[in-house]
Design a protein around this nucleic acid. Structure first.
Length: 854
RNA sequence: GGGGCUGUGGCGGAAUGGUAGACGCUGCAGACUUAAAAUCUGUUGUCCUUUGGACGUGGGGGUUCAAGUCCCCCCAGCCCCA
């Protein structure tokens, strides 16, 4: 007997070729089947896939293949999030071109993804840097502009004076540019915005309908939108060069603390602050100092609270007390009205500020855990507040709002933390904003028939700043309106633009007229199952939701919500290693001998450190390609699915991948051996089975149902456990007659179909080895017999006073009385109740018998 | 500071309020082998006076015939927002 070892490389390549040649995963709209749109977050083409990608696509592939087997018309596409800053940085560092770098990376990563054997319709592949892609988003930009959803306004940005560019908040680290290290300045610039705030309430309400999203993500979006009920009211303000009837408008969510107010604070950008700066050089210097701080809330929050006392005073609306007005570096101009009333006894920032500048701190709210001398933040009961004393915060707020409205000085308003989405980037490798600046006509949209506004290829990075701005010819054009010489807009779009609608482009990727046809959207949308990392919980997912509403307003036919189901996977972690000189060492370079870690090449000792998220800087990464080359895609996929629940972090270990690899080989061996004596495909079911065969069949049919339930619930680790159980039952089974063999074939055929979503190459190989000519890609999920899901006998525990004293096996139809009788007969039970009186016997059929005695 | 998640053997993790530890990894013992690898079999929560029993799901309380699971308080770790 020749025992052929399972040749992973050849077999996996063979089936990948087969799927490709038979176009196994290409789909079109088919009204005869229910559709299922399975989507993994599209990758950024960095050049190499990482283990996080493997986890993401292994999950989406399980869902896609499973849904297909369950009779759904499954769309599972893939593309490239190809615009963005890393390509430009790489171009600068390696003296290459962002476009070339990006397309090289796409080619490499595609090859790697192909080696995973994913059930993807590659005919729909897109790259967002393709002008045929971004022409449609330029059209959308124009539609947004027409529908009052895109606008340009002067706003304050983080400016890197060395790089000559605007930085996003997350690119500012400790007040310095992340690349240049230069202190960031706040500058006023004209920037493009999308009016996401128009849908603030709708986006908030929509969250309620997303019942197949993780609560965590829904909470984060709710907090991000940050709806608050408050009041805007006017202080009378005087002093300096202010006009006699000047008012200071402030917003607060805690008007219940109004009697504790002892000062007011203006944001550095507030008009009254600027007015003062015109004549007061110290004020001017202070404001400039504040502007040197980044614009992020975090940066502002972290900085030391500083204030500048102005000559202004405000009048308390109820007590008529004259109170000082400061300019403060901690007040955010874009939130509320850019000025605050203080509540030093009830807000930490105000408390710190008042302490520093010796301002009165008067407690006006009390409640549990109130500590004298510390800021007390929670709502409570009012004190020191005149006629409002004794009211709860909520009662007081509605009364005070009503009173201020009556006085004509304020009104209750709803405020959102959500800001309009700034989409301008002063960068080359992005989608050009399709506008022209004309001296006579002003801002002019590029006519649709001139789209796309394409990026020039010939650029240089000799100098910092935006290459588009410095390009000798590109920005010089004529005004579409008056034909005079004019300048193109040189801003490009935030790359979140591309990812906000790419899932619509997959539906109709070759359409040259429109981004997508309505009928395609109506058939496929919404995405039934979206899978990706939780790091996109707010921005990408919120922007995509905004896009649906915006596109709808512009006449596109799209659903309100783009993603009906969302699953966020956990991170992949790995142990870290350091050598004697405290350098990080790659896991691939170390080995464990007799419990001691050392460098494989020279035997030098290595210490194992914490298990943390894989990161290049800590070198605790494994290259998925190495894994796939060594163990095969099936083993890699199996391991990544089997060890941890998908929503939790997964620790990558050598032992784990080897265990998966052993299972792959075990399955191959078991099926190969069994096939030599099993009946042929399609042999008629025998009429009688031995007890052992019946039990095996029961195990098979339970697995069919259980694995489906587990996949539906994203419990992939449990699905794998059930598959192993079935496999164990089958390999432990020794057939004695033809009926036994028939039951074994039934079991193995089910087994192969059950693990097909996880290990598709092995499954196809074994399926064909067992004599099937129809590939698994066209084979439905196995059917099951309900009668075989029930057991004849059931083993249950018998408790005395809640402690297990015996186990008994009963017919599954046994009555409560029978169960109680048999339970009472058990030695262990008798011993336990000896000398006691039985007070009560609880029988839960099929579950438990509990005898209460004392 | 606010919000959220998590806490179960040596490890990853299972358990509609009903026999805690499925499935796997590791370890140990054995079989096969000249040997090793691979494979197979058994075993693997702790403790005890070991044919039995006690204890055991971060800690403390509570509800219940019955709590890993539900409720309250606390501790630790992680994530998000500040």
């Amino acid at each position: 007997m020749t025992e052929e070892r399972y040749n992973i490389r050849e077999t996996e390549a063979k089936w990948q070729k087969f799927w490709d040649e038979t176009k196994a995963f290409e789909v079109t709209e088919d009204e005869s089947k229910p559709k299922s749109y399975v989507l993994a977050m599209l990758p950024y083409p960095s050049g190499r896939i990482h283990v996080g990608h493997v986890r993401n696509y292994s999950l989406s592939d399980v869902v896609a293949r499973y849904k297909k087997a369950k009779g759904f018309n499954v769309l599972n596409p893939m593309g490239w999030d190809a615009l963005g800053l890393p390509a430009e940085n790489a171009a600068i560092e390696r003296n290459t071109h962002p476009k070339d770098w990006t397309y090289d990376n796409i080619a490499q990563m595609k090859e790697q993804l192909l080696s995973m054997g994913l059930a993807i319709d590659w005919s729909r592949e897109i790259a967002t840097c393709d002008p045929e892609y971004y022409r449609h988003e330029q059209k959308m930009f124009l539609d947004f502009y027409k529908n009052d959803l895109a606008y340009r306004k002067e706003s304050i940005v983080n400016w890197d004076p060395v790089e000559d560019t605007v930085l996003a908040n997350e690119q500012v680290v400790d007040g310095k540019g992340w690349r240049s290290g230069a202190p960031v300045e706040r500058r006023k610039l004209y920037q493009w915005f999308f009016k996401i705030t128009e849908f603030a309430d709708d986006l908030l309400q929509g969250i309620e309908t997303l019942d197949r999203w993780p609560d965590k993500v829904r909470t984060m979006q709710t907090n991000w939108i940050g709806k608050s009920q408050g009041i805007e009211f006017n202080f009378d303000i005087k002093g300096g060069d202010l006009p006699a009837d000047a008012k200071l408008n402030v917003y607060t969510t805690r008007i219940d603390t109004i009697f504790g107010t002892s000062f007011a604070v203006l944001a550095p950008e507030h008009p009254y602050a600027n007015l003062l700066a015109e004549t007061d050089t110290e004020a001017k210097a202070f404001i400039e100092d504040c502007m040197a701080l980044g614009t992020s809330e975090e940066a502002i929050e972290r900085a030391e609270k500083k204030g500048f006392k102005t000559p202004y005073t405000v009048t308390h609306p109820f007590t008529n007390e004259e109170m000082p007005v400061y300019i403060g570096n901690f007040v955010i101009y874009s939130y509320g009205t850019g000025a605050i009333k203080s509540a030093p006894a009830h807000d930490e920032r105000d408390h710190a500020f008042a302490t520093k500048y010796g301002l009165p701190i008067r407690p006006v709210i009390t409640g549990p855990n109130f500590v004298e001398g510390e800021a007390y933040g929670p709502k409570g009961t009012l004190i020191n507040s005149g006629e409002y004393d004794g009211l709860t915060s909520d009662e007081a707020m509605s009364k005070i709002i009503a009173r201020m409205e009556e006085m004509g000085i304020g009104k209750g308003v709803t405020n959102f933390r959500l800001r309009d989405w700034g989409v301008s980037r002063q960068r080359y490798w992005g989608c050009p904003v399709p506008f022209v600046h004309c001296e006579d006509c002003g801002l002019v949209p590029v006519p649709e028939n001139q789209l796309p506004v394409e990026l020039p290829y010939d650029i240089n990075y000799d100098k910092p700043g935006n290459p588009l701005d410095r390009h000798p010819t590109w920005k010089h054009t004529t005004c579409p309106s008056c034909t005079k010489d004019a300048l193109r807009e040189t801003d490009t779009c935030d790359t979140f633009f591309e990812s906000s609608w790419y899932f619509l482009r997959y539906l109709d990727p070759k359409n040259t007229e429109r981004g997508f046809a309505d009928k395609k959207s109506n058939y496929w949308m919404p995405v039934d199952q979206y899978i990706g990392g939780v790091e996109h919980a707010v921005l990408h997912l919120l922007y995509s939701r905004f896009f649906m509403r915006a596109l709808k307003k512009c006449g596109y036919e799209v659903p309100d919500e783009p993603f009906a189901g969302l699953f966020t996977q956990g991170m992949v972690t790995h142990a870290t290693y350091k050598d004697v000189d405290n350098n990080w060492i790659f896991p691939a370079d170390v080995e464990n001998k007799d419990g001691i870690w050392m460098i494989s090449d020279n035997g030098q000792p290595v210490t194992q450190g914490a298990v943390i998220k894989m990161s290049k800087s800590k070198k605790n990464v494994v290259d998925p390609q190495d894994i796939i080359d060594t163990y095969g895609a099936d083993a890699a996929r199996l391991f990544i699915l089997s060890d941890s629940p998908p929503e939790r972090d997964l620790e990558w270990t050598v032992g784990g991948i080897e265990g998966a690899w052993r299972f792959v080989n075990k399955l191959h061996r078991a099926v190969t051996e069994a096939t030599s004596y099993l009946p042929e495909v399609g042999t008629v079911q025998p009429t009688k089975f031995s007890d052992a065969a019946s039990k095996l069949r029961s195990t098979t049919h339970k697995a069919i149902v259980g694995v489906a339930e587990d996949i539906d619930a994203f419990h992939m680790n449990k699905a794998v456990a059930r598959i192993r159980e079935l496999s164990n039952a089958l390999t432990a089974f020794t057939p004695n007659d033809d009926a036994d063999k028939w039951a074994m074939r039934e079991g193995y055929e089910a087994l192969v179909r059950l693990f097909n979503p996880m290990m598709p190459h092995l499954a196809e190989e074994l399926w064909s080895l067992m004599g099937h000519t129809t590939p698994l890609t066209q084979t439905p999920w196995p059917s099951h017999d309900d009668a075989l899901l029930k057991d004849d006998k059931v083993t249950i525990g018998v408790q005395v006073n809640g402690k297990v004293r015996a186990t008994i096996t009963l017919d599954s139809g046994a009555t409560k009385e029978q169960a109680e009788k048999i339970a009472m007969e058990q030695d262990g039970v008798q011993k336990a109740i000896e000398g006691q009186t039985v007070r009560k016997v609880i029988v839960v059929p099929g579950r438990i018998v509990n005898i209460v005695a004392n």
